[in-house]
Amino acid sequence: MQQLAIFGGTFDPIHWGHLLIGETALHQVPVEQIIWVPSLNPPHKQAALFEHRVAMLQQATQDRPGFTVSLIETNRSGTSYAINTLIDLSAAYPKTHWYWIVGLDAFQTLPHWYRGHELAQMCDWLIAPRLLGGETIAQSELICKQVEQELINQSVSIRWQLLHIPLVGVSSSLIRQLIRVRQSIRYLVPEAVRLYIAAHNLYSK
């Protein structure tokens, strides 16, 4: 049985922090591929056009054989829900043990996701600690254990582990903010992504 990891998100835009999370997962867990899944219609936020986010993602990951960009969301109608993504990918990749890469903030809300109790048990969870708020690894682990206990109280089991990631204080929202005020984003995103953003005048308004 092959082992694959899903890394879903808006990637608006993708940055070095995302890539570091993906690279860490490849080395920490015995997965053969990280499947990057840009969300077509994110449930809680507005984002740049899907085709722009896909193009940036493809440029940022093209030189890493362990990374694959999936366009499985392209034909999705309505809101992009994680469980639908996993069901569709399971059909495309049968006989697979799945991992799901998620940030700590999103993992905290997992019990309240659409069909979250089902999804929690369908894969192993790889959690990227929250680094921008200054939390320690111990604090991140405590938050994960609280989520696990909340699910156990509702008769839902879950398997999870924290990813051991070097500290990188960068976020997509920071990058968008810097662009709006005409500050440099060099070294926050891959150079191909920086050039793409400039060429298409993204995030400047």
Rank of each mutant, 00 (worst) to 15 (best):
residue 178 L to R: 15
residue 164 H to P: 02
residue 174 L to G: 05
residue 164 H to L: 09
residue 71 L to P: 00
residue 54 V to W: 04
residue 85 T to Q: 02
residue 175 I to K: 08
residue 18 H to N: 09
residue 60 A to W: 01
residue 144 C to L: 06
residue 52 H to F: 02
residue 61 T to V: 11
residue 179 I to R: 15
residue 99 Y to R: 05
residue 69 V to P: 03
residue 160 W to C: 00
residue 110 L to K: 02
residue 195 L to P: 04
residue 97 H to Q: 15
residue 72 I to V: 14
residue 198 A to N: 12
residue 191 E to M: 12
residue 170 V to A: 08
residue 59 Q to N: 12
residue 121 Q to G: 14
residue 32 E to M: 08
residue 67 F to A: 07
residue 121 Q to S: 14
residue 5 A to H: 00
residue 38 P to K: 03
residue 10 T to D: 02
residue 75 N to V: 04
residue 173 S to I: 11
residue 39 S to T: 15
residue 149 Q to C: 00
residue 192 A to M: 10
residue 137 I to Q: 10
residue 149 Q to Y: 04
residue 29 V to H: 04
residue 205 K to C: 10
residue 14 I to Y: 06
residue 3 Q to A: 09
residue 82 A to F: 03
residue 36 W to H: 08
residue 107 F to C: 01
residue 184 S to D: 13
residue 53 R to F: 02
residue 146 Q to M: 06
residue 122 M to K: 14
residue 36 W to C: 05
residue 155 S to P: 01
residue 155 S to Y: 01
residue 175 I to F: 03
residue 176 R to H: 09
residue 149 Q to H: 13
residue 63 D to K: 14
residue 153 N to Q: 12
residue 180 R to A: 15
residue 187 Y to W: 14
residue 147 V to F: 03
residue 73 E to F: 03
residue 87 I to T: 14
residue 150 E to I: 07
residue 49 L to V: 08
residue 28 Q to I: 10
residue 84 N to G: 08
residue 85 T to G: 02
residue 11 F to L: 00
residue 181 V to M: 12
residue 58 Q to G: 05
residue 187 Y to Q: 15
residue 82 A to K: 00
residue 158 I to H: 00
residue 65 P to V: 09
residue 121 Q to C: 07
residue 91 A to V: 13
residue 4 L to F: 06
residue 124 D to H: 15
residue 69 V to Q: 02
residue 149 Q to N: 13
residue 18 H to I: 03
residue 189 V to A: 11
residue 171 S to F: 08
residue 202 L to V: 11
residue 65 P to T: 08
residue 128 A to I: 06
residue 19 L to E: 07
residue 80 S to K: 02
residue 150 E to G: 07
residue 143 I to R: 13
residue 48 A to E: 12
residue 76 R to M: 04
residue 123 C to D: 02
residue 182 R to K: 15
residue 76 R to K: 01
residue 138 A to S: 12
residue 144 C to S: 12
residue 178 L to K: 15
residue 127 I to Q: 07
